[in-house]
């Protein structure tokens, strides 16, 4: 039985709001965890334990004046934050978070939409999303913003190849591009993180670079570029860019959970599907915050050398060896 279209719409609304709340509290969690790791308290004034800090930030951003550089290209300047935010939100729709249920006689699938090529779809929409960042940097007509956008371009092109090659091993083992089938392939057996450990590490490293987080945050290096491509943005337009960056991180972690960590499966208690998914997701997000507080930023030549001379050969070798083993075994 397939699910009726209106259930998909309701589910999409719920998931979008959950992801948005997740984003809001991820910013708080990041500041709190970073604070503790740097022997500070982190935000603790707005509400108990600073729990209302995201709401306070939102109010601040919304009430700010929508400042606009006089020489900016207006249409592109205004449109690019929306492109970035829209593509970031839409990619989460294909990530499976549960087995699917029957509620009041209606079939409810464990993801918003199930398409047979969902893995490629995520990469395709994500690659459109990068235009939001690049066009924003160009349309701002500012040297810092343009340099940030140039760095974003170069970094994304360099690391996207490794990212795509690192998931190839999983695709070969599951023999499918569908995320639901990849999750099903990990049921009752080893998660793909065990046979594909190299792929997992490459995925995490290239993913950190794709989302431009420390130690790969050169596109937004504050000390050199003020803020990178969103230097000239303020208020909620800036908020949309921050939102899309954090949501891209959440989607990337969700993708890592789906591809390498068994998705919503656990060794036992499979009925708690979405909860296991959430637990694994949070663990990965914590890992990303941990990496950010621990490692210093790379130099630009180190970034390029690492991407092309270390990560890409390792990812290629991993894909080739996996292909040989899958055919031979």
């Amino acid at each position: 039985m397939t699910e009726p279209w209106w259930i998909s719409v309701i589910k999409a609304l719920i998931i979008i709001n959950l992801v948005l709340v997740g984003f809001a509290y991820l910013t708080l969690a990041e500041r709190k965890v970073m604070g503790r790791m740097q022997l500070r308290y982190g935000p603790n004034r707005a509400g108990p334990f600073g729990l209302l800090q995201p709401a306070a930030d939102l109010m601040k951003l919304i009430r700010k004046e929508s400042f606009f550089p006089a020489s900016a290209v207006d249409v592109l300047y205004i449109a690019s934050p929306f492109v970035a935010a829209f593509t970031a939100l839409s990619t989460f729709s294909v990530i499976p978070f549960g087995p699917g249920w029957e509620i009041f006689g209606y079939q409810v699938d464990g993801q918003v939409v199930d398409v047979p090529i969902s893995l490629i779809l995520i990469f395709a929409i994500g690659s459109i999303g990068t235009f939001g960042f690049i066009v924003a940097g160009w349309a701002s007509d500012s040297k810092f913003a343009l340099l940030g956008a140039m760095r974003t371009c170069a970094q994304l092109v360099s690391y996207e190849v490794s990212l795509a090659l690192s998931v190839l091993g999983v695709v070969l083992m599951a023999q499918s591009l569908s995320l639901t089938e990849i999750v099903a392939g990990q049921d009752g057996t080893w998660w793909y993180v065990v046979p594909q450990f190299v792929g997992f590490v490459v995925f995490l490293l290239a993913g950190t670079a794709e989302t431009a987080r420390a130690p790969f945050d050169l596109p937004e290096a504050e000390q050199e570029l003020v803020a990178g491509y969103h230097t000239e943005y303020g208020g909620m337009r800036f908020g949309l860019f921050t939102m899309s960056e954090y949501i891209n991180l959440i989607t990337l972690s969700g993708l890592a959970v789906t591809l390498f960590l068994g998705g919503w499966h656990f060794f036992f208690l499979d009925g708690l599907g979405p909860i296991w998914f959430l637990v694994k997701l949070l663990a990965l997000l914590f890992l990303f915050i941990w990496i950010r507080t621990t490692l210093p930023r790379l130099r630009y030549d180190q970034l390029m050398r690492f991407g092309w001379k270390v990560l890409l050969p390792v990812a290629t070798l991993n894909a080739v060896v996996t292909a040989i083993l899958v055919v031979a075994l």
Binding site: I120, F123, A124, I125, S127, I128, T130, F131, I134, V135, W138, M150, C153, A154, L156, V157, E160
Partner: peptide, 14 residues
């Protein structure tokens, strides 16, 4: 979308 609209056009814009 992935190859042409994504990767190739990023280089063009760059």
């Amino acid at each position: 979308v992935l190859v042409y609209a994504g990767a190739v056009m990023v280089m063009f814009l760059f």
